[in-house]
Design a protein around this nucleic acid. Structure first.
Lengths: 335, 335
DNA sequence: TGCCATCGTCGATGCGCTTCGACACCGACG
DNA sequence: CGTCGGTGTCGAAGCGCATCGACGATGGCA
């Protein structure tokens, strides 16, 4: 292994000088700098991460806690993870992956083993049991999602409340008077997953203020569940003309089922989805959607984390405004 | 921070004794062991990862290189990652995520910074430029996928060649005489992505030996591409009765398009997919499929890695046999 | 010419842990 | 009773680095 001493010898300087060249924490003459940098390159020197962590109390690692459940949208999670890794690397940090399954103890472990410098936590619940423990951790923490009481933790997420409202507004503007929300599976609501309840709230409030009849259902992934859900909705209100789908996984099944029923999109029924743009464009009828900006959320989460690490101590709560893109799946209802 | 010294003091023993209690590398009297373990628990002691890495040259971290491209199946990648993290944790290791985008240099960096104890590399290409460098790394490496010349690296993957053959065999057994493969996007082939070419080989060889007319096409994600691909295939051979789809992303579009053409599945045309079971079951017509056992591959990859870390030096190449599940999308062609 | 401030470099120290050799103690055996 | 082997514990060294105080050199100014 090539150490800082090897570099120092090769360059004819002291190890500490090499360290200062790398960190830039003291001024170095151009001549010495060049000498050292050349030696570093020639020897292919990389500082030993453990030694560096021990001496400096910084690991240059960010830990990310992801949910492994299949009832969440894996594509969204993956996109988020991808952008987080990329953003972290842009700040010269690495990304350690933890699973929600390991529970709060894993967070303790990471914190007290000094494995990572900061934590990013996905899939936050409204009354998340991890929040109090995270507060006690004295590591920078950024939540993806917003619990009821962030209490000093930084948060970033799509503004799902506004997203719910935007969907209703779009349909109401088109003239729809009776709409329904097809939401995530019951398990998601049961856990109190933050985004689900926030979206529902925005949906309900907007429906009330726009004076639109609004139903909402939770729906599991299976084709049968989707079908039963539609049966139920159409039986309850045969005049239903608009569907808001906050459950990407049911989209294929839903669209097939509508066609089987002889309901054309958008002529007979409008559909608006909450999903990534790529998914919206993938269907036969391109879907009007509110985008889930997983990539931007990931980047933002890392940026906020880095700011905390840089000493910026005040926690921020950042809600990204929803972006609705009109495509082919929404239209005015027939008179 | 609570250190090994704090624990030693609390237990009234030497720090080295605490270390031996934890590692089990020397025998400890039951009395002392209990004393130490109690102190550890009471103080909530976790060894400092950096210090431990420095002293022992072990990080207890596995690095996983994942592709971030969207032309690969994100669900499969995610499933793999999930099982890898879980398996790693079961062996008391953490998982560090790297992206393929960073290129070979990132692997160098991780190795010479002693950030991880081993590397797992996904999305391997037939003539992967990373292979020679990985060989020089003197870290245990496990490839997910099989390059042309593994040359001493461990590999694990679904046996895609056998999978390709199995698809053909299934259709041939049903009596199909003309079939086609709809493969991944051209970019995937261009990269020489290992699994794509292996599957194609198995497909071609089986078709030849079973005396089945076989065409194959590469197909991008878009609905238009799928449609054009079908136009082409049906024009080339109007007698086409079987489709093998090795490109999960096009499935929804493909199935819609077939229906638009008035082709019923499986009455007019059989469809067999290479995709995770969950995806196969999600469609209106449940799809006969060859499963992509991402979870098992992930677990296996970790197990192989741990074996290497335990001193087991001979590299293994492990190909998982394909499992074909017959569902509703395949049937004998009408006479 | 002499003094001081500044800049660039060095040496020493310690981060928390693992590991090695040393050693004290105990029971068994001749 | 003396010796020997084994068991359990200890102390010290060192892993590779960052960081702090110190110090020599250089240049400006009086």
């Amino acid at each position: 292994m090539v150490t800082i001493n090897d570099v120092a010898n090769a360059a004819g300087v002291a190890p500490s000088t090499v360290s200062y060249v790398i960190s830039g924490k003291r001024s170095i003459s151009p001549k010495t700098r060049r000498l050292v940098e050349d030696s570093i390159r020639k020897l292919g020197y990389h500082p030993h991460a453990g030694a560096r962590a021990l001496a400096s109390s910084k690991t240059n690692v960010l830990a990310l806690v992801v949910p492994l459940r299949t009832d969440l949208n894996v594509a969204v999670v993956m996109e988020f993870v991808a952008s987080a890794v990329t953003a972290a690397r842009a700040h010269d940090h690495d990304l350690l992956l933890l699973t929600k399954d390991e529970g709060p103890a894993a967070l303790q472990r990471v914190a007290s083993s000094a494995i990572a410098d900061a934590l990013m936590v996905m899939d936050v619940e409204t009354a998340d049991p991890r929040v109090p423990m995270l507060l006690a951790l004295d590591l920078p923490v950024v939540l993806i999602g917003v619990p009821d009481h962030p209490a000093g933790l930084s948060c970033v997420d799509l503004d799902f409340t506004a997203a719910g409202s935007a969907c209703v507004a779009h349909l109401a503007d088109l003239g729809h008077r009776s709409i329904a929300l097809i939401g995530p599976s019951p398990a998601v609501y049961r856990r109190g997953t933050s985004y689900a309840t926030r979206f529902l709230r925005g949906f309900d409030e907007a429906a009330k203020s726009r004076d639109v009849r609004a139903a909402s259902r939770s729906c599991a992934h299976s084709y049968e569940a989707v079908s039963a859900c539609l049966d139920d909705l159409l039986a309850t209100d045969p005049g239903l003309t608009g569907l808001v789908v906050h459950n990407e996984a049911v989209l294929p099944g839903l669209l097939s089922d509508l066609r089987h029923r002889g309901l054309r999109v958008p002529e007979d029924i409008s559909v608006i989805a909450v999903c990534p743009d790529s998914m919206a464009e993938q269907h036969v009828v391109a879907l009007t959607n509110v985008a889930i900006p997983a990539e931007e959320v990931g980047t933002q989460a890392v940026e906020m984390t880095m700011r905390r690490l840089a000493g910026h101590t005040t926690p921020e709560v950042r809600l990204l405004g929803p972006r609705l893109t009109r495509r082919e799946s929404t239209a005015s209802p027939r008179a």
